[in-house]
Amino acid sequence: MKINYLLVIFLLISTFLHSQISGSSGVYFAKEFSKDQALYKAKEFVMNDLIKVSSNPTKFSIDPLAAANSGQLTSLMYTCEDQNLSGLVLGFFGNRWNESGVNYQAYAFKNLTKENAFEILSKIEKLIDEHSRYLSSDSDTNNLSFEFNDMTFLIYRDVGTKIRVFWNGFDAEWESTAFNRTKRRFERRID
């Protein structure tokens, strides 16, 4: 009987020691991973896809503005005075599965020109203000959705205002704190 208890305890300990731990289970870990990785990977995106690197040296800057607590979305601002380019990059992070069923961390970047960034940030803020009473009247039940370019947005209240952004197979949560920080920092730094 004693051997059975020891066997059960050994199996439980072995299971816990070999269990996989989610990288996004800790709010701070997910946020830091997203912001650090987004900055690192976005540099290549801006260099290759936006400013089109050439044999001539081109100066550009990229600055992470805010990362959502979920770790699914990070906003970054870029400027390239040499080519008169500036805008907002949204970095999307999430888990994907390949044909073999292997889980991996996927990411993609969505570029918003300076004008598009101002437009979408203002539109989201305006919609939240205009429909605040409706969203608050029945939290997590009343929703507001709209499309902008190739992105779909879902706004609802659950403790605070939540914004879900659907794009290119990603479903990223952008809570109001990260959204407001993005809007404030982008508007202050862009010009």
Rank of each mutant, 00 (worst) to 15 (best):
Leu135Tyr: 04
Leu85Asn: 08
Phe118Ser: 11
Ser54Val: 01
Tyr28His: 09
Glu99Trp: 00
Ser70Tyr: 03
Val8Ser: 02
Ile155Gln: 06
Thr161Ile: 06
Gly26Thr: 01
Ser132Ile: 00
Asp36Arg: 03
Arg181Asp: 13
Ile9Ala: 14
Phe148Pro: 02
Met151Gly: 03
Leu7Phe: 06
Phe10Lys: 01
Ser139Cys: 05
Val46Tyr: 13
Arg184Tyr: 12
Ser70Ala: 02
Thr152Gly: 02
Ser24Phe: 08
Ala66Gln: 13
Val8Thr: 15
Asn103His: 12
Asp158Glu: 11
Leu39Ser: 03
Val89Glu: 10
Asn168Lys: 13
Asn98Tyr: 07
Asn98Trp: 10
Phe118Gly: 10
Cys80Arg: 01
Ser54Lys: 03
Val102Phe: 11
Ile190Arg: 03
Arg133Thr: 15
Val89Lys: 13
Gly94Thr: 04
Arg96Ala: 14
Asp171Thr: 04
Ser19Val: 05
Asn69Phe: 04
Leu90Pro: 06
Ala38Gln: 02
Leu154Thr: 11
Leu65Val: 04
Phe10Glu: 08
Ser19Tyr: 09
Phe166Leu: 06
Ala117Val: 02
Ser25Pro: 00
Asp191Glu: 08
Asp63Glu: 14
Thr113Lys: 05
His131Asp: 14
Glu130Asn: 09
Asn48Thr: 07
Leu12Trp: 14
Arg185Ala: 11
Gly26Tyr: 01
Asn142Ala: 08
Val102His: 01
Ile190His: 00
Leu6Tyr: 14
Gly91Leu: 00
Glu115Asn: 00
Leu127Glu: 15
Ser145Val: 08
Phe45Asp: 03
Tyr5Phe: 12
Lys126Met: 10
Lys35Cys: 05
Asp138Asn: 15
Ile9Ser: 03
Val159Glu: 12
Glu125Ala: 09
Lys123Thr: 14
Ser86Leu: 11
Lys52Ala: 06
Leu11His: 02
Gln72Thr: 12
Val159Gly: 01
Gly26Val: 06
Ala38Thr: 06
Ala67Asn: 04
Gly169Tyr: 05
Lys41Ala: 15
Asn149Ala: 14
Asp150Tyr: 00
Arg185Tyr: 11
Ser22Ile: 11
Phe93Ile: 01
Thr113Met: 04
Trp97Tyr: 15
Gly94Asn: 07
Tyr107Asp: 11
Asn4Phe: 05
Leu85Arg: 12
Phe146Asp: 03
Lys183His: 13
Lys110Val: 04
Val46Ile: 09
Lys126Ile: 14
Ile124Pro: 06
Val8Trp: 07
Tyr134Phe: 10
Leu154Asp: 11
Val46Pro: 03
Met1Gly: 12
Ile21Thr: 10
Ser22Lys: 06
Thr141Ser: 13
Leu73Met: 01
Ile124Val: 14
Leu12Ala: 07
Ala178Glu: 10
Ile163Tyr: 01
Phe146Val: 02
Ala68Leu: 06
Arg181Leu: 10
Tyr104Trp: 11
Ser25His: 03
Glu99Asp: 09
Asn98Cys: 12
Ile124Gln: 10
Lys2Ala: 12
Gly71Phe: 02
Ser176Asp: 15
Ala42Leu: 02
Phe179Ser: 09
Phe45Asn: 04
Ser55Glu: 15
Gly160Ser: 07
Asn48Arg: 04
Trp167Ser: 00
Asn111Phe: 09
Ala108Asn: 13
Asn69Glu: 12
Ala67Pro: 12
Glu115Asp: 13
Leu17His: 02
Arg181Ala: 03
Lys183Gln: 07
Ser19Glu: 09
Arg133Met: 14
